[in-house]
């Protein structure tokens, strides 16, 4: 029975402690400042903000946009 108490206490300490430590680590490393810059971390010069990075195979976006414009359909106008 006491084994379970030990397990429970240990789990609480380890997990709660790790959560607190993670928050502390993030705060001291400046993870919570410059949030907007953080959101842009997934982009780089090759795949910058504003560029669609995945299309169906064989789909040429420029040709497709021209084709749609010719047909009078809506083309890709996006808010960045």
């Amino acid at each position: 029975m006491s084994f379970y108490y030990i397990l429970m206490l240990a789990s609480m300490v380890i997990l709660g402690g790790s959560a607190v430590y993670a928050l502390y680590w993030a705060a001291t490393r400046g993870q919570f400042s410059r949030m907007e810059q953080g959101a842009k971390v997934i982009f780089d010069q090759g795949e910058p903000v504003g560029k669609v990075t995945d299309t169906f195979p064989g789909l040429d976006m420029e040709k497709e946009q021209k084709r749609r414009a010719e047909k009078g359909k809506k083309t890709l106008k996006r808010k960045v």
Binding site: Q31, M35, A39, I42, V49, G50, R78
Partner: peptide
């Protein structure tokens, strides 16, 4: 959280909310 912004080329709306 990675795929949606990455594919459309727009950063996550509110990064603070995601944290």
């Amino acid at each position: 959280y990675y795929m949606i912004p990455k594919v459309i080329g727009r950063p996550v709306y509110s990064y603070y909310l995601s944290a």
